[in-house]
């Protein structure tokens, strides 16, 4: 009992955010329920992003009814590889990645052959809501297959590593690189066993990571150290994430991005209830950073200034980055 109180106080002093605080002070306060569909439905997110001129993986086609399943042939005709996704899926479930063709059949990343009937069944399950939140009917999204940058070859197992940046009212607060492992089955989802690696907001250098709630330094499958990796075009990622506030209207989001070999940073999806393990990955608490942003917001509001995405990124990098830089905005 006494130990628990001590732990509580220590966590609280470090500004570690708990689920209750995240829900009460951030998710409920900054995220309007009516805007949820924009982030819950990947098709809507993608459409909004395209309108705003933000980079996303190309959309090849949408299947909304059982009747349309036949359309799959014309959609994938011209593409050697592609991804089939449920529009309202969560946690990377129901995603089928086709990497290649093999004598007219489809082949997944891991080399498994997918027959046409397998594909139809998969699409039908998605439509019936198997993977959607709440189990209601869903749509199927067929899009460009992201090919991860060579950079990640040493620190990732199958799948596509992604970068999650938590953005509060347009200010990036914390960032994490998520690396699939053998345990996570190639999915970049921490709950399923992927690794989260903290990222310095200012420089884009990776820090140490978290795996299953513990701190780690090396990738369990490749045994390469996960820290000290320089992510390319980091400011691009930061600007992309910051601009998602205007895109979605939601004040507290996790922006999931990937680094494509050819196309650079792309937005995959937005999350209105981003997880808290990012704190372990960064060895830092969210509460203090969020409060600093809130103070900045109040200050800007008092002066009647609305900051642009670039200004917000600069502010965050100045305050939360490990490397101190001369700051123009502070």
């Amino acid at each position: 009992m006494f130990g628990l109180i001590k732990t509580w106080k220590a966590l609280s002093a470090r500004g570690i955010m708990g689920i209750n605080r995240r829900n009460a002070d951030y998710v409920l306060k900054y995220n309007k329920r009516s805007l949820y569909p924009v982030v819950d439905d990947k098709i809507l997110t993608k459409q909004r992003a395209i309108e705003a001129g933000i980079n996303v993986p190309d959309l090849y086609g949408i299947i909304s009814t059982e009747h349309d399943i036949g359309k799959i042939d014309t959609i994938i005709e011209q593409h050697q590889d592609f991804v089939v996704k449920p529009a309202q899926g969560a946690g990377g479930d129901g995603i089928l990645v086709i990497a290649d063709r093999f004598e007219g059949r489809l082949k997944t990343v891991s080399g498994k052959i997918v027959s046409r009937s397998d594909m139809e069944y998969h699409i039908s399950s998605i439509l019936s809501g198997l993977y959607s939140l709440g189990g209601h009917r869903d749509r199927v999204l067929i899009e460009y297959r992201v090919i991860p940058d060579e950079l990640f070859r040493n620190i990732s197992y199958e799948g596509v590593p992604d970068i999650r940046i938590i953005v509060l009212m347009g200010y990036p607060v914390m960032a994490m690189l998520r690396l699939p492992t053998r345990q996570s089955g190639g999915k970049a989802n921490l709950h399923q066993g992927a690794i989260g690696v903290g990222v310095d907001l200012a420089t884009g250098l990776t820090l140490r990571g978290t795996w299953l709630n513990a701190k780690i330094e090396k990738h369990p499958d490749t045994a390469h150290p996960v820290d000290g990796v320089q992510l390319p075009d980091w400011d691009g990622f930061m600007r992309l994430a910051a601009s998602c506030y205007e895109l979605s209207g939601l004040g507290y989001i996790g922006v999931d991005m990937v680094l494509d070999k050819d196309k650079g940073p792309l937005i995959l999806e937005l999350n209105a209830r981003p997880g808290l393990n990012i704190q372990i990955a960064n060895d830092s608490g969210l509460t203090l950073r969020a409060q600093a942003v809130e103070a900045r917001l109040a200050e800007m509001q008092a002066q009647g200034i609305v900051e642009t995405a670039e200004e917000r990124v600069a502010f965050s990098q100045g305050l939360f980055g490990h490397v101190s830089r001369p700051t123009a905005t502070l």
């Binding site: 628990l4 732990t7 509580w8 220590a10 966590l11 609280s12 470090r14 570690i16 708990g18 689920i19 209750n20 605080r21 009460a24 002070d25 978290t210 709630n213 513990a214 701190k215 704190q279 372990i280 060895d283 608490g285």
Partner: peptide, 22 residues
């Protein structure tokens, strides 16, 4: 309870790693 912001008991265990000195 609707505005309770404190930690959940299990979170004290979950975030324990953060308190460990390297």
């Amino acid at each position: 309870m609707g505005r309770y912001r404190g930690y959940r008991l299990t979170e004290l265990v979950r975030f324990k790693a953060l308190l460990k000195e390297d």
